[in-house]
Amino acid sequence: MKRTLLLLALAPCLAFAQSKADKLAHKYIIADGHVDLPYRLKVKHFQLKKEYTGIPISTDEGDFDYTRAKAGGLDAPFMSIYIPSKFTPSEGKLLADSLINMVNFICEEKPTYFEVAKSPSDVRRIFKEGKIALPMGMENGSPIERLEDVAYFRKRGISYVTLTHAKPNQICDSSYDTTRLWQGLSPFGEKVVLELAKQGIMIDISHVSDSTFYDAARISPVPLLASHSSLRHFTPGFERNMSDDMLKVLKENGGVIMINFGSTFLDGEVTQTREKLRKELNEILEAKGLKMRDKEAKPLVEQFFKEHPEAYSDVEKVVDHIDRVVQIAGIDHVGLGSDFDGVGDSLPTGLKDVSGYPHIVAEMLKRGYSKKDIKKLGSDNVFRVWQATIDYAANH
């Protein structure tokens, strides 16, 4: 009874706090370092035809659409031009072009909703016009077969390149692969890093091995970007995330880490729990003659995870990661890189789609962050890295 009365008494305060968070999320520009919409639509057989009705204005599919983004205050989601590691450079270039074409087509067909952005000034103008800006980042540098390809992709609108993905490529080693082909950057990769800076493309070190990160930090003339990574402190042994020492180096470099929302990126204990639950779920499906990816299995999978909330992290853990970046590197070096449409069913409670950003703001306000801090996290920090890279290119 006392607990019920306490909750009733606190309800107006909680509602006011959430309302304030919602206003701030819409007042300041929120840029998200990584949203996998293009590849999700590609897999769904997106066609570049005017009669296509799947342009994401309002849909219950995936994690992103215009309506939910506007509700969440999301203004500049970096569209991931994702290239799977299995593709050859020539195959990857064709795929990259098709995904870039898709983003351009969406903006051309729905110009009152979306516009491609190639700089922070573009985003600010588009924000004032009430539209959502769609900057682009290429996830995996494998399509860069020659140095001239860097300028080609900049001309096509690419604003960052993630040096690799799940396997080593001609540029560097991946955090997900143990072969360590190059022990960091390859000789060609060193040239690519310098050429990216020269062309005004941000150097994204998400997915790379530790040695690749340190090599890139050593030679890069511009601040580095981790477009969708979290912290290894909370996920021991998970090299895909960044260590405390890497954060210190990132601070010296002037770079920014944008926190990934995937539950397995946020909490090592949740990762272990999910592994146990997946074994249990597989046994249930096998008994019914089904596999996890079967269409008939989808409602069973959804119901199973609905009954097991412990399979997910939460908004509080996202802000724990933000807190630790601030503690080690400072408020100027952190942003948001959700990986929406890229981490499947592992999104945390309170952040199941792009409408959830005000929940992060509310938790930050609760912990004493200022409006200025929230503005930096939302976009100022990544804009600083982006503009510094553009300015370097203009002078070289």
Rank of each mutant, 00 (worst) to 15 (best):
S243F: 11
G356K: 07
Q327C: 01
E316N: 08
F265L: 07
D173Q: 09
A216E: 11
H228P: 04
M136H: 02
V116Y: 03
G268W: 05
D391Q: 12
V123E: 05
E296Y: 02
A297S: 14
E108I: 08
H26S: 09
G62E: 01
T88G: 07
T271W: 12
I390D: 05
V382H: 01
L6Q: 14
L224K: 02
G368P: 04
M138D: 04
Q272K: 15
A69Q: 03
G62A: 05
S19E: 15
E275A: 14
K375T: 01
E283Q: 14
I57N: 09
T235S: 07
D339C: 06
G141V: 03
V150E: 07
G335L: 07
D380W: 02
L196C: 08
E252T: 13
A117F: 03
G200F: 08
N241Q: 10
F383A: 06
D353M: 08
D391S: 12
T53C: 07
G72H: 00
P348G: 10
Y82L: 09
A96W: 00
A31G: 04
T59L: 05
K191D: 13
A21T: 08
V301N: 00
D345V: 03
E310G: 04
I331K: 08
K23H: 09
H45Y: 10
L95Y: 00
F105N: 06
L196I: 09
S230D: 15
F16W: 15
V343I: 14
K42I: 04
F16T: 12
L48N: 06
N241A: 07
H233L: 15
F46Y: 15
A21V: 08
F238L: 13
P299M: 05
L377H: 01
D22L: 13
A311K: 00
I390E: 05
T59E: 10
P299V: 04
S142A: 14
L196T: 06
S19R: 13
